[in-house]
Design a protein around this nucleic acid. Structure first.
Lengths: 202, 202
DNA sequence: CCTCCAGGTTAACGACCGCTAACCTCCCTG
DNA sequence: CAGGGAGGTTAGCGGTCGTTAACCTGGAGG
């Protein structure tokens, strides 16, 4: 992860604030004037950077899905030729937790405002999401071979629900410390998968 | 659970359809005309039954929170004088899963549109939610005494995220069967709690 | 120094939305 | 059978919102 040192562009500022506002009050609940005000310009000035309000949401959601998928692919590749399923799953979980903890507004948008997109954008996002899920499913099934595919997919979605619950955990800083929270979530995710893979043939 | 046999009142029809629409497209994304159309009357006819669009959302959210809390209290009481923590936790999990599977739109609204409420209603809903969470926290800590309270609370929220993920699992009927799904979710929830309670002192 | 464009501004338009007003029509009741 | 309330209807108002139009300005380039 190459850490950015240069200042964020105006486009990036806008996207960040829009994400926060959309997550807080919903896509329809936020006006363009508010988004503009959040970055110090006013309403219609946004149209110098984006084609419209929809375009901001689209770019956010496509970006999220793409980042998640790209990161997961990278982690899978880094695992080497004959990866240990446990290590790969740990790596996937870690990546998802990082994302959920560092970009809470985005993780909130990700499964909440998808239906507000134009058809083509929505299809793209869904495709990226599906690839991401399938990637997890394969790793989970490698670790728990007894799991049928639909069951594994349900389990993956459920663990996403668990990991994505962080926005509900408290106002900004009330968590017991980032590392502690990450550790707890990680252990719980592993525990949930283990329970899914253990008893039943699915 | 006394099963209803009489026909639903118009109010109930409206609430049900409103819940579905709010869950699908967000509170601000649904117009009163659409809600009316969904029950066969048109727009302003709704105002014979509700003071306004906000009132529908308020009644839905207060109802959900109340039902969850009431059900949980009942299950706790049914457990008897010196309850086995395991059995109580299983009962709580079962109740929450029933709710998540049977009233998907409501479970979606429950953690998504809370901020659209008037102050007084929002406070009431939050209070009910908090009581529900605290009830779970006590049971979890009885079962895993090593868990510190904040950790237990985080764990409970995370398991809610897991259980509430059902709306994302698939379109209407694509699940492997209700009982199977319920069983999977139940095992995963228990596994997640076990993992939270096992390793760390939290 | 003139030009021009990137990136702002304000004004205003058209659409939509929540809600009210005014009216109608059963159906129940005394 | 008169009366009235419950539960609809349509028309329309007032406000908001996304978007466009028209205009302004500072700074870079020839």
């Amino acid at each position: 992860m190459a850490t950015r040192t240069d200042a964020p562009t105006r486009r990036e500022q806008i996207l960040k604030e829009a994400a926060r506002l959309f997550a807080e009050r919903g896509f329809h609940g936020v006006g363009v004037d508010e988004i503009g005000a959040a970055v110090g310009i006013s309403g219609p000035g946004l149209y110098r950077h984006f084609a419209g309000k929809d375009a901001m949401l689209a770019e956010l959601l496509v970006g999220i899905s793409g980042q998640l998928l790209t990161g997961a692919k990278r982690r899978l590749a880094e695992a080497g030729e004959v990866p240990a399923p446990e290590a790969v799953l740990d790596s996937l979980i870690e990546g998802h937790i990082d994302f959920a903890l560092d970009d809470r507004p985005l993780i909130t948008l990700h499964d909440r405002e998808l239906d507000r997109l134009r058809d083509s954008d929505r299809k793209l996002v869904r495709q990226l999401q599906r690839q991401y899920v399938e990637l997890w499913v394969e790793v989970v099934r490698a670790l728990y071979p007894g799991l049928a595919e639909p069951t594994a997919r349900s389990a993956v979605h459920s663990v996403f629900g668990l990991l994505n619950s962080t926005p509900h955990l408290a106002r900004p800083g009330a968590l017991p410390g980032r590392a502690t929270t990450a550790g707890l979530l990680h252990r719980m995710a592993r525990g949930a998968f283990a329970a899914a893979g253990a008893t039943s043939a699915g």
